[in-house]
C-alpha cells in the first residue's frame, strides 16, 4: 500500500484515525507492518502489502 492511503482509511470499528507502526518498505510501497487505531488500539496487519482492515472477528481466511 501507499502511505497516502492512510488519509482515506480509518478504524472499521470506531472510525478513528490509524497510525502506521513497524512499517516495512519496498521503495515507496509499504509491504508490512500494522495499522493501529489511535483510539481503541486495535491493530490491523498489512499482509503482502495489503492492509487487512476486517474487524478482528472477521479476519480468518475461511469464508464463513
Amino acid at each position: 500500500m501507499k502511505e497516502s492511503l492512510l488519509d482515506i482509511l480509518c478504524c472499521p470499528l470506531d472510525k478513528h484515525d490509524l497510525e502506521l507502526e513497524n512499517a516495512e518498505y519496498d521503495g515507496d510501497e509499504v509491504v508490512g507492518g500494522e495499522l493501529v487505531c489511535t483510539e481503541c488500539g486495535e491493530a490491523y496487519p498489512i499482509e503482502d502489502g495489503i492492509p487487512n482492515l476486517l474487524p478482528p472477528d472477521m479476519r480468518d481466511e475461511t469464508p464463513a
Binding site: 488519509d7 482515506i8 480509518c10 472499521p12 503482502d48 492492509p51 487487512n52 482492515l53 474487524p55 481466511e61
Partner: peptide
C-alpha cells in the same frame, strides 16, 4: 483474501475490507 491478492497483482491499490467500514 484471494481477491485482494489478485487485484493487487493487477496494480490496483487494494484493501481487505467489509463493504465501506474502514474508509473515512
Amino acid at each position: 483474501p484471494h481477491a485482494v491478492r489478485q487485484a493487487r497483482a493487477e496494480n490496483v491499490e487494494t484493501v481487505r475490507a467489509d463493504l465501506v467500514a474502514p474508509f473515512r
